[in-house]
């Protein structure tokens, strides 16, 4: 059921740190991040990796530059066609 609905759903393709990812419409950027090799959204002050934590716009761990706008939260942002996401990880 779920597989079928995914295949039927329209998809969008975005770029996260230069890599293309194709996801179903409605996927959040934070969820799309998990399709990359690593689930890393940023580096902490010592350079250690961090990933999304709260999923709901509270923790700010998933902030990234999206389409040129800095400090956007991936968990509150739906994936869109041709979107460009750049993390500082």
């Amino acid at each position: 059921m779920r597989e079928a609905s995914l295949k039927n759903a329209s998809v969008v393709t975005l770029r996260i740190n230069g890599r293309e990812v194709t996801v179903p419409v409605g996927t959040s950027v934070a969820a799309a991040l998990a399709m990359m090799d690593s689930f890393v959204s940023r580096a902490d002050l010592s350079g250690r990796p961090r990933g999304p934590l709260c999923g709901m716009g509270v923790c700010f761990e998933c902030r990234a530059t999206i389409d040129g706008v800095p400090e956007v939260l991936m968990c509150l942002t739906p994936c869109r066609e041709d979107q460009t996401v750049v993390t500082d990880a």
């Binding site: 409605g26 996927t27 934070a30 990933g51 934590l53 709260c54 999923g55």
Partner: peptide, 26 residues
């Protein structure tokens, strides 16, 4: 959230945090 060793590792989320990301397509 309550801190414990390793809680800053990617892949550690909230309970509902993980749930909403799954709903969002993770």
């Amino acid at each position: 959230f309550l801190p414990f060793p390793g809680w800053t590792l990617p892949g550690v989320l909230g309970v509902s945090g993980l749930q909403v990301l799954v709903k969002d397509g993770l």
